[in-house]
Design a binder for these strands. Sequence first.
DNA 1: ACAAATATTTAGTTTTGTCTAAATTTATTT
DNA 2: AAATAAATTTAGACAAAACTAAATATTTGT
Lengths: 220, 220
Amino acid sequence: MTLSEEDYIKTIYHLAKGEGHSITTNAIADQMETKPSSVTDMLKKLSDKNLVNYKKYKGVSLTEKGAITALSIVRKHRLWEVFLVDKLDFAWDEVHEVAEQLEHIKSDKLIDKLDNYLGNPRVDPHGDPIPTKEGAFKKSVKKLISELPVGCQGVCVGVNDSSAAFLKFLDKNRISLGDTLTILEKEDFDGSVSIAINEKEMRISDQIASNLFLEVLENK
Amino acid sequence: MTLSEEDYIKTIYHLAKGEGHSITTNAIADQMETKPSSVTDMLKKLSDKNLVNYKKYKGVSLTEKGAITALSIVRKHRLWEVFLVDKLDFAWDEVHEVAEQLEHIKSDKLIDKLDNYLGNPRVDPHGDPIPTKEGAFKKSVKKLISELPVGCQGVCVGVNDSSAAFLKFLDKNRISLGDTLTILEKEDFDGSVSIAINEKEMRISDQIASNLFLEVLENK
DNA sequence: ACAAATATTTAGTTTTGTCTAAATTTATTT
DNA sequence: AAATAAATTTAGACAAAACTAAATATTTGT
Ligand SMILES: [Mn+2]
Ligand SMILES: [Mn+2]
Ligand SMILES: [Mn+2]
Ligand SMILES: [Mn+2]
């Protein structure tokens, strides 16, 4: 597998949110900041290698083999992120670019030993679960703030958009993973949400609410 | 710089043993297990980028810029080797292939933090010196056993040939970096050398003697 | 149902890095 | 000083991964 093939497989996996449903050519192109025609070329190649199910004009999904591959790359990406934050003292909003490179290093032995060295972590610095070597996954019950009703209380466990801009915003507003958050009110007009966090009340935009994951404790 | 360009620069650096003298096209091709014509193509490109001095048919050497680049790659390679051995518990003869990949990860911040995390080591697991960020180099006074006279005593600090085969041979014969070794006798006929190491005497072939570096303590 | 808009694929190029085969230059013999 | 051998370069081809522009398929709006 080339680096580029791996990035495509991972992107398809993420766009399908781990489920097997069909993804469009343009969605992949948008996500990877490339052209749809380039995506088509690659989908043919991945299909020849039995990594994806691809039917012209009908979208694409991962095969069993493709899903296993995706999980192994995700595993490596997230383990390296833990290494960068826990051992090298990177901030959680600085690790993505480097992990994007490190995830492509080829050595089973390396990743086994790294996993062990880090104490077999179950989640990465963004609260996302780390698949086991066998591809097993702690199915997390997390949901976006925008998807939850008023009254819900939960723990911030992850982000949807992990762009540096968004992560910086969270830092600036003293929102960290592990913080407990309560949804106080929702505004239909603009989708903004009023929340309680760290003993304070604040209002966040729909853009924020639809990019911050909560592990729900109570949901009535 | 592409991964391939980096590997060429590093190979030229190693073939010149850190000195600036001229290297032949075939020597590079042999070392990299590629064809001379491919080397010629790459030398033209590196010359266009001012990384090497190249004159048709006359060999190639690194420019100042090329040497700085080479040292930065060597630095990364050796720091990663220390990480693999010290932190992840790799054996010293298992690290090369992985370090060959890791040396190409692009992030100044990463390598600074890694250096710091490892305690700013001065040598890698093979006893080779690690250049500083500024490209400075503790010029080591090490020499091959084959180059030293009878009576010399020194510490094993490195290998010339770091092939897995050679490293395995050393392990099997209980020769490790850090061991003190004395040269007892040299046989003109076949270049074999009689040595004392770890309270034992043994005879090593010229092939071994010309691939094991000693940091000389006494040289009379 | 049909026209217009949108999504996707195809065709033809480009860049990078490799290769083989042929041509050329340099080195070594006789 | 030729003749031969070895080293090196050139020419032409190919695969991977990207692009632009054009063609085709699908979806949407009326
Ligand atoms: Mn990547
Ligand atoms: Mn992450
Ligand atoms: Mn390398
Ligand atoms: Mn080394």
